[in-house]
Design a protein around this nucleic acid. Structure first.
Length: 144
RNA sequence: CCAGUCGGCCGGACAGCUGCUGCCACAAGUGCCGAAAGGCCGUGGUGGAGGAAAGUCCGGGCUCCGAGGAAACACGGUGCCGGGUAACGCCCGGCGGAGGCGACUCUAGGGAAAGUGCCACAGAAAGCAAACCGCCCCGAUGUGCAGGCUUGUCUUGCGAGCGGGGUAAGGGUGAAAGGGUGGGGUAAGAGCCCACCGCGCGGGCGGUAACGGCCGCGGCACGGUAAACCCCACCGGGAGCAAGACCGAAUAGGGGCAACGUGGGCGCUUGACGCCCAGGCCGGUUUCCAGGCCAGUUGCCCGGGUUGGUUGCGAGAGGCGUUCGGCAACGGACGUCCCAGAUGAAUAGCUGUCACGUCUGAUGAGGAUCCGUCCUUUUCGGGCCGUACAGAACCCGGCUUACAGGCCGACUGGCACU
């Protein structure tokens, strides 16, 4: 229903695979949603946006973890190219709620969250991390 | 019909839309990514989680570890008998013991007459024979009670206390108290004697064996504990696919092979020349034998590690069917099939319909009734109801643990009917 009838073609985002890339993106912006936490970082090159998935062992056993990853991956596939900011990488950290939340909510949360994750202020929702975040973002800006 | 025991099996189905990944076929360009190795891109077909994939507890395959041989010791494991198996601590069939009316279930089940240790609490006593209460006999004393006639510092009986002895039946403690039950016997008792049971020893019988039952003898000694040390028999090198193999940047950087060989002493031909002596390191430890290595110099050669990539990687102690042997585990023969291969980790995401279960409402029928209702069943509807445990990670054989709900078969004990 959601994916089939629309005119927009589903996007085929590349997946992040290297540990170093995950670590780099963790220093970027950060926004929390019901079913996941979204991290994002701008890049210099012109390549299309990439995405990585993470679910910690704390969340549940392997059945639960892989089902959360699949739902997140399916939600990303529903996005139109216009929803995704270019020149950026993202990491989705799955939460336990991603298991039972409705699929429509999952997709809409993702759409609204993507631009925010690149905004430096979105990382300041926790007082403790304010300084560290601001520094890391400013460093990445200098590079770009 | 009710209650139960054992064994086996399944573990949601279908449809639509959108995806992921292995393999096969066809097709693409002087294509794209990358330093290279290598990888990527289209269309079609086809395959794609489990009974436990889990825990990582045993047994193997495979791989590497400079894995040398022998013996002893140490350490770890196993432990009734026979069979199965590549092997096992697994499985099958038996035996002994325990439980159940029964089907059947459970069982870490070698040795306590090699030695050492321990046996808490309670109890008199816990391992070597003893005796707390009690029971019985004897003695002295002559107190208490009752009696006798000879009325006494008399005598008889009973009881209490004291002393000496006999007992282990009874009481009580305990997980366990030097066989049990019954009878005889005795002052009271006791294997003191007898019968049966148990135990020990011997004989022969059945069984491959564990073991069983039979006969005879012995009056009973030899407590338990080896998931205490220990003894006996048998087995065992270690680490693991992040094993290992191959391909391979920039940068930093050095390795390997060959020859001479290290230390000490002596000699004179003062040379890296000869002779003699001595080491150190390498396996869990020790001993013996065998072997390798050592500081530096000279010459020759170019490799190793990191990011990364490829491989290892699935035709197997393989599945299914038929048949033969076997009580069975299992084995043989024949036929047939190819049946996951990811690596920030695929095997799915979403939606709908149905199924099953459960709760609930309404109905038709039957039964019970204290006339309130309750039980069984038919049909129809509803519920932001439920549908478990759980995701291959090199591969097999087991074990253990988790699991909503359901199906099938065999058997046992009741009740009812014919």
């Amino acid at each position: 229903m959601i994916g089939s009838g629309t005119n927009q073609t589903p996007t085929d985002m590349k997946t992040l695979k290297k540990r170093s890339e995950f670590l780099a993106i963790a220093k970027g912006g950060r926004v929390g949603r019901r079913a996941f936490v979204l991290q994002g970082l701008k890049r210099t090159s012109d390549e299309p946006a990439r995405v990585g998935y993470t679910v910690t062992k704390k969340t549940g056993n392997s059945v639960v973890r892989s089902r959360i990853k699949r739902r997140l991956r399916a939600a990303v596939a529903e996005l139109a190219p216009s929803d995704i900011p270019g020149q950026a990488d993202f990491v989705l950290i799955g939460r336990e709620a991603a298991l039972n939340i409705s699929f429509e909510l999952l997709v809409s949360d993702l759409k609204s969250g993507l631009p925010l994750a690149l905004n430096p202020r979105s990382g300041t929702y926790r007082g403790k991390r304010r300084n560290a975040k601001a520094q890391s973002v400013s460093v990445s800006k200098k590079q770009g």
